[in-house]
């Protein structure tokens, strides 16, 4: 006959009683403290003043920017006259640059849709949450999948002549292969090897988006043809 439990845990909604928190330890685990908590300081004034100083610096910078540079104002809107090139706001120029390579359904719908979706689901993927280095487990298998994927992407980008995306892809691909070397010993190699898959994907996305936006902003002239910034 099993020994009766020494206490009974219940859920109670009586607001007059102070709740007691209890930790249940199941078998094969032991309590451990992963991170020792940092020192804490008072939000006021320590945190607040730091924030305020940062804000003041920002405001000063923006004031001088506004005093010295006027916001652009062109001629009155005229639907009959399309400026060449007609450019979207700068943060959409990466997309507009993609439109140059891919059909609108891909560049204008599929890619931004996927990006937003990916951003939303980022925290819900175990692989992200565990933050393991991408090559830690199943190295051979993953390497095979990775090489196939990489070549597929390179082929696709070459087919559409998207060199602006191809360059960051090759860069990241090379970095990931470097990270896949077994038994890293140097610090940098260890650091590379510790990076999870999501790190690589986001870094690739960051570089690609920056390159596309910069090209769209500074290197595109009439007819979306390539120009140098000093020719604009």
């Amino acid at each position: 006959m099993p020994e009766p439990p020494r206490f009974i845990a219940t859920l109670d909604s009586n607001s007059r009683r102070t709740p007691v928190r209890i930790a249940f330890l199941t078998r094969r685990t032991s309590p451990q403290v992963k991170v020792a908590d940092d020192d804490v300081v008072m939000t006021w004034p320590n945190g607040m003043f730091r924030a305020l100083v940062a804000i003041e610096l920002l405001v000063i910078a923006l004031i001088w920017l506004s005093v010295l540079w006027d916001a652009p104002l062109e001629a009155l809107a005229d639907p009959m006259q399309t400026p060449n090139p007609a450019k979207a706001p700068w943060y959409f120029l990466g997309l507009q640059e993609l439109l140059h390579y891919f059909p609108p359904i891909v560049a204008g719908v599929l890619i931004p849709g996927l990006v937003v979706m990916a951003l939303v689901v980022v925290p819900y993927f175990n692989i992200n949450v565990e933050a393991e280095g991408v090559w830690t487990k199943n190295r051979q298998m993953r390497l095979r999948v990775f090489v196939v994927t990489l070549f597929a992407m390179i082929a696709l980008l070459l087919a559409f002549k998207v060199y602006a995306v191809l360059a960051p892809t090759l860069l990241i691909g090379a970095a990931m292969l470097a990270a896949a070397r077994p038994h890293p010993n140097r610090r940098f190699a260890i650091w590379l090897a510790s990076k999870p898959l999501s790190y690589w994907i986001v870094t690739w996305f960051l570089i690609t988006a920056s390159v596309l936006t910069i090209i769209g902003t500074f290197f595109r002239g009439p007819g979306w043809a390539w120009v140098w910034p000093w020719e604009l």
């Binding site: 908590d37 940092d38 020192d39 804490v40 300081v41 008072m42 939000t43 320590n46 945190g47 730091r50 924030a51």
Partner: peptide, 10 residues
């Protein structure tokens, strides 16, 4: 905001 923050956080 919380009354206290971690020192590292600020």
């Amino acid at each position: 905001l919380a009354v206290k923050v971690r020192k590292r956080a600020i």
